[in-house]
Design a protein around this nucleic acid. Structure first.
Length: 830
DNA sequence: TCAGACGACATTTTT
DNA sequence: TGTCGTCTGA
């Protein structure tokens, strides 16, 4: 039918009724197949409204419906995320699960807050046990469809750990309160729908008939709830098309069940399986590399990925001295490529395992004048000011939303603190009221001084008035009125403070978002509502706003990279402990080890033309330098190893150079701000702050690098000599600014001095004789015998690095409190 | 009630 | 090294 489709792609497109499983490797044209398939179904007379396509991200949903639209010109096909599909369903049938149609959606932060509050009510200590861990347990249980009741039963039948003891009490209370507030969290959105499908056969049948053709993207990422939903919709009409790739399952830790994919054929006996193995995205070198890597996993569907693309450059592994070099090396290279006209900024993406790795890169990119955007991190809707205002809006929409009430009651300060809130809450519970309703009856609440009653009543009245206004007017006007009435901007008034300026900007941006929402909905012929706007806000995340067309380098975690592609990709920190991450390896679970490998596989397969993996010899980790070990996945791939170690001198040799560079960077920043076409790189103040701390770190890092040289060298005599040499080198470098004593000392140097002075005096105050010496033999309760290879200087945070006999394992400990036992010195290093 | 000091903490997180 | 929640004194 379409000449540009490969035979397997064509088969997937032409398949009509019955279950279809599309195993789609990375870059195999999956989205294309899905959109063509939808078009083909419509061509065959299926009605658009009979087709439901479910995705995990808004981005995927948007992309799919845009492409369907592009193909057909119009489409009333339902394309949405699991969560918004469920939200919409619950708005239609709220009473099925005991909600009202104006229910509000709790976000992650609200959930934590609620758990924290419940823990306090039940008199659990929130300092020793992080509410997030409790919430995690609850969420995990619910992902597996374990209700509070079932959890309690299970708990009683086995010996639980201390956390479960708390969960045991908190879980049912949490569920109850969420429901009482007429709200749902992300998990409940799905669970309620599972309940409807499982508990009401008539309803299930109705929905099954409504959505005769269901398509699910990224099926390997579905959790048990999503699995049930999909199955519930495909009984009478099992016209279910699932696409996925077991090799890209990277959300197991979050309850995703890749086995759903493996089980598909068993669940739907008539399944036709199509395997898409031709990669259209990457060069042969990249595809080959990815194939080598993933072949080390045990895989059920092991089809080889192949490509007919050109061979391309070999995949490189670049080794840098430390994370600063790594950051500057990458930034510099990107800057060069672009200024030489070989590429544009948006061609580049930088991936990393943990968000913490992005900071030095952000600094370096700014430094080299490279515009960038960071995906994830703080979402717009997570900003304090935005959440405040959304809290108000939620309370206006749903007066029972106690979490929202607690958030905004004292914002801006009305003199209602913790204590008062507790009194109100107690009264509310006793009389079965929402907090807002209780506030409205403040005069009846015992134990409240007159000084607290006034503000409570006023607040109640304010929300009431605004709720009335909300029924009539536009949402943007409502927010404006709200801001006016509570004098919200008075919280962020400092004209010169960039943070405040930023916050005010966000407030206007929220108003703007409301306006855009309203206009868009009206243009689509629907009626905008506060409810709809709130839903949009809760179910939208920042990752969606990553825009490849913005002319900027994209920075993101490997997880966030899934589904994207870039001409040139850098994957930073391909080191043991990062990929695979230490935490993931905690239990020595081979499944996690494989999931980490898949994560790297996902990163690798994002690259179209060029792929660079990087690693460093040492990394600044939470303030101290640690030597690194290469990732065990590295030897699994054919890579060209490039040592950038000696080539790249530290970017700043002396502190006096810092100011000149800061000035340059500031000019660049100002220029880019004026141009407006490229996104602002980083605020000038921010950049300066970072660069100064970087300069300080470089000083320390240089020091550490020399110490490493010393430790690494073979003979002790050599080490001593080198140490001497580096001493003199260091004086030569650092003394440059000191010698120019006539000139005013620059701020950075002062900062550096203050810092070192402070450190010195702190060290002097708590000075203890060093507990460990270089070359000393020690014993660790878990890792056994080892030799001290490095001891940091005598500050209170002194660290020892030990090379253990087992596996050549190398670990760094804080000297002050580590379980190392000295075993006396061995001959060679004193 | 609030601002600042102190100390515990530190993956990934489509919604 | 940073961030965030809790504690404490004004």
């Amino acid at each position: 039918m379409n000449p540009s489709l490969t035979p397997p792609q064509q088969a997937a497109v032409d398949h009509f009724e019955g279950p279809l499983l599309v195993l789609a490797g990375p870059g195999s044209g999956k989205t294309r197949v899905i959109t063509y398939r939808i078009a083909r179904l419509l061509q065959r007379g299926v009605l658009p409204e009979e087709i439901l396509a479910l995705t995990f991200t808004n981005k995927a949903a948007r992309e799919m419906s845009e492409r369907v639209y592009g193909l057909l010109g119009s489409a009333r096909v339902h394309v949405s995320t699991f969560h918004s599909f469920c939200a919409r369903l619950l708005r239609r049938f709220p009473d099925q699960v005991g909600l009202k149609d104006n229910f509000t959606i709790l976000d992650a932060a609200d959930q934590v807050q609620l758990v924290r509050q419940i823990m306090k009510e039940l008199e659990f200590d929130t300092t020793t046990l992080d509410p997030r861990r409790v919430l995690n347990r609850i969420s995990n249980a619910r992902n597996n469809l374990i209700t509070a009741e079932a959890f309690r039963q299970q708990y009683e039948e086995r010996v639980g750990d201390p956390i479960d003891t708390v969960v045991y009490e908190v879980f049912p209370e949490y569920e109850l309160q969420v429901l009482h507030q007429n709200s749902v969290d992300f998990d409940a959105l799905l669970l309620h729908v599972v309940d409807i499908l499982g508990g009401n056969e008539q309803m299930r049948e109705f929905l099954d008939r409504t959505y005769r053709f269901v398509l699910v993207d990224e099926y390997q990422d579905t959790n048990l709830a999503q699995y049930r939903i999909v199955r519930g919709l495909s009984q009478i009409f099992p016209n279910l098309c699932a696409t996925g790739d077991p090799d890209q399952s990277i959300y197991g830790w979050r309850g995703a069940r890749p086995e759903n994919l493996a089980q598909f054929e068993a669940d739907f006996p008539q399944t036709q399986v199509v395997s898409l193995d031709q990669n259209f995205r990457s060069t042969q070198a990249i595809v080959q590399c990815a194939g080598q890597l993933i072949s080390h996993n045990t895989r059920r569907h092991r089809s080889e990925l192949f490509t007919e693309n050109p061979p391309g450059d070999p995949v490189r592994l670049r080794v840098f001295a430390d994370s600063e070099d790594e950051a500057h090396g990458v930034a510099e290279e990107i800057a060069e490529h672009v200024s030489a006209g070989r590429a544009k900024f948006s061609d580049f993406a930088i991936f990393y395992r943990v968000n913490a790795l992005s900071r030095p890169v952000e600094t370096a990119l700014s430094f080299h004048g490279v515009p960038f955007q960071v995906a994830s991190g703080y979402s717009f809707y997570d900003r304090a000011e935005v959440r405040d205002l959304l809290g108000f809006l939620r309370l206006i929409e749903n007066p029972a939303d106690d979490v929202a009430f607690s958030r905004v009651i004292n914002r801006p300060a009305r003199g209602i603190g913790e204590k008062t809130l507790q009194t109100v809450a107690a009264f509310a519970r006793e009389h079965q009221l929402s907090l807002l309703a209780a506030a409205g009856q403040a005069e009846k609440i015992p134990g409240l001084g007159a000084r607290r009653r006034g503000p409570l009543k006023e607040f109640h009245e304010l929300i009431g008035n605004l709720a009335e206004a909300a029924l009539k007017g536009r949402i943007d006007r409502l927010i404006e009125r709200l801001i006016g009435e509570i004098n919200y901007m008075s919280l962020w008034v400092d004209e010169n403070d960039e943070v405040d300026e930023d916050r005010r900007g966000n407030v206007y941006e929220l108003i703007n978002a409301a306006r855009l929402y309203e206009d868009a909905v009206q243009a689509g012929g629907d009626t905008p509502s506060l409810q709809g706007f709130l839903e949009l806000a809760s179910l939208t995340s920042e990752v969606d706003s990553v825009d490849e067309s913005r002319g900027a380098v994209t920075l993101m975690t490997l997880h966030a990279a899934k589904g994207l592609e870039f001409p040139t990709v850098y994957i930073l920190g391909v080191e043991n402990g990062l990929i695979p991450h230490d935490r993931a390896m905690k239990h020595g679970d081979p499944a996690s080890y494989q999931e980490e490998r898949r994560l790297l596989f996902v990163g690798v397969t994002r690259a179209m033309q060029e792929l660079n993996l990087t690693q460093t010899r040492r990394r600044n980790f939470r303030g101290s330098w640690r030597s690194t070990i290469s990732s065990p996945y590295v030897p699994e791939m054919q890579l060209e190893v490039v040592c950038e170690d000696d080539e790249l001198a530290p970017p700043v040799q002396s502190i006096s150079q810092v100011d000149a560079r800061i000035e340059k960077a500031r000019l660049r920043y100002e220029a880019s701000k004026k141009r407006q076409d490229s996104p602002a790189i980083m605020s000038a103040a921010d950049l300066e702050r970072r660069m100064r701390s970087e300069a300080i770190r470089i000083e320390k890092g240089g020091d550490a690098a020399r110490r490493r040289q010393q430790a690494d060298s073979d003979s002790p005599t050599d080490a001593a000599e080198q140490a001497d040499e580096s001493q003199s080198q260091e004086t030569a470098e650092v003394s440059v600014p000191t010698e120019s004593a006539g000139t005013a000392l620059d701020e950075a140097r002062q900062a550096l001095q203050r810092l070192t002075q402070k450190k010195k005096s702190a060290a002097a105050a708590t000075a203890k004789p060093p507990r460990f010496a270089l070359g000393e033999s020690v014993r660790h309760p878990r890792y056994g015998r080892g030799v001290v290879t490095e001891v940091s200087d005598g500050s209170s945070r002194a660290t020892v690095t030990v090379q253990f006999e087992v596996d050549d394992r190398c670990e760094t400990f804080v000297a002050a409190h580590c379980p190392l036992q000295p075993l006396g010195r061995t001959g060679n290093a004193s």
